[in-house]
Amino acid sequence: MTPISTVVGTAVCLLRDNIDTDTIIPSREIKVVSKTGLGPSLFAAWRYLDSEKREPNPEFILNSQKYHDARILIAGENFGCGSSREHAVWALKDYGFDAVIAPSFGRIFYENCVYNGLLPVVLELQAVLGIVKQIETPGISPEVRIDLLRQHVIGPDGIEHAFEISEANKEMLSSGLDHIAVTEKYIDAIDAFREKDREKRPWAYL
């Protein structure tokens, strides 16, 4: 996984609440046992006029020229709720997104982001609305800068908005380390736990 420190680029807003992972990538689009190549399936139901010919829906914001190189997605409350499908994160990454900003996220989606190098930024609603307003103002370049290490977002007006992220998630995203390898350092603790636990809860073992 590529380590992340900052993400700078065009931001695009999909300011609806409860955008679920079925919407991010419909199940029918998941056709191969693979983590790659899912970008064209991103938001398929909203993005195309029909699922077969895939003619772009001109009213869907990702299809507008202004946002053709979007790297940051700004969304409403509870983004990524619903199904655990990690394909939602793989599709966003494959499309070209490196970060998602929202007031809140679905838990599993958020965790999937962390393990796949898609930076999830929980920003309070008023700050989100402020940035959105600027981005959507005609004539203003929709560029946003996210600094993971300093934990802030800077919108087009240059104002910094701080965001919270746990040390663990920050470390995972900024190091790009393999999480299994990180846990394997605790192998002795795991073995010791199991040994004691087999005595305490013998019925739990098959």
Binding site: E167, A168, T183, I190, F193, R194
Partner: peptide, 29 residues
């Protein structure tokens, strides 16, 4: 508490998992 293997420095915990269930849609991968 009964599944806590270790409290990690980064604020996460390592929790012992007793059963893992998988299905074809997300398990094979």
């Amino acid at each position: 508490e009964d599944h806590l293997v270790a409290q990690l420095d980064d604020g996460n915990s390592l929790i012992a998992i007793d059963r893992i269930l998988l299905h074809e849609r997300t398990g094979a991968i």
